[in-house]
Amino acid sequence: MARRLLSEVHPIFYFLSVWFRRLITYLKWSFEGKTFASLKSTEKLPYRVKKHQSVLIRKLGDTDLQLQHNKVKNLSIAIGRIDGIIIRPGETFSFCKLVGLTTKRKGYLPGILLSCGEAKPGIGGGICQIANLIHWLVIHSPLTVTKRYHHSFDPFPDDRRVLPFGSGATVFYNYIDYQFMNCTAYTFQLRLWLSEKCLEGELRVDQNLDFAYHVFEKDHQFLKIGNKYFRKNEIWRNKIIRRKSGEILETELVTKNFAEVKYVPDTYEQSDELKQPRGVYED
């Protein structure tokens, strides 16, 4: 018989486990020596690095549509904590440190949370959409991602997905964080806002960069292993020179993704063994 974690035995053990890990993270924030970005400005830095938008309301299986409308409210609150943030040389951006704990008292509503292998309602659910968008902007820049997690399962078939699978980030206050560091001599700024149908954002910089990044997907595939379905791919990027017809300076592997899917794909290949890249997913 498989041994069960204490957090699976009774809800109180899960609660204690979460708050123990949060306490450890609070201590790390105080003693690990990072300088966290905290300055915000309503004035835009002069140059745009990358802009992106993602649809607010999507079809997500048979989940309650009201949870998605609640998500829009949650996004609007979290955006207010991030929009305009300045990331100066040597500073680290921390999603959880800026947004804080999502509670009813702050106005957050039940949205969709992905946890323990299932999608379920939870206060503040849906704000991972912001982390997804920010990560997409960041990997189009010379900023350095220092902490990123991704869900170990894919709950719903694609609905108007425009980004490669696995190119986002998940957050859960405060130990499942999304962080990046500015190891350059430039100053960057994140801008976020809601339009009628989309979450929108852009990454800006104080000097015009003479290079850019093109991010692309390779080797996307659905697999059936035993009675379960999985999805894998690789995400790469090219660093290119702007003024020389896109001459490639370097090509870099960003991440390898492998996750169980909770639906039956339209097409898939049968496989006999499970080969999951180590260190790709952490919950």
Rank of each mutant, 00 (worst) to 15 (best):
T42Y: 13
Y26P: 00
L143M: 11
I82Y: 01
H52Q: 12
K50S: 14
Y149D: 06
V18W: 11
H10D: 10
L274W: 12
E234P: 10
E202F: 08
A259L: 07
I235N: 06
F258T: 13
R191H: 15
A2M: 09
K106G: 01
Y178P: 04
R242N: 04
Q221T: 08
L133E: 11
G117N: 01
G100C: 02
R105L: 12
F31V: 15
A119L: 01
L23R: 07
L203P: 00
I248S: 14
G33P: 06
L199T: 09
W193A: 07
V162K: 15
E282T: 11
L60R: 12
C183W: 03
E32T: 09
M1C: 06
K197Y: 06
A259D: 05
T267G: 01
L199R: 04
L194D: 03
E202K: 05
D272F: 07
C96G: 09
I85K: 09
L109N: 08
N174R: 12
K50D: 04
Y149L: 10
K34F: 10
F180K: 08
P89D: 11
S94G: 06
S152Y: 06
L109D: 02
S152P: 02
R231V: 12
I130D: 00
F156M: 12
K106M: 02
H10L: 02
T42C: 13
S17Y: 15
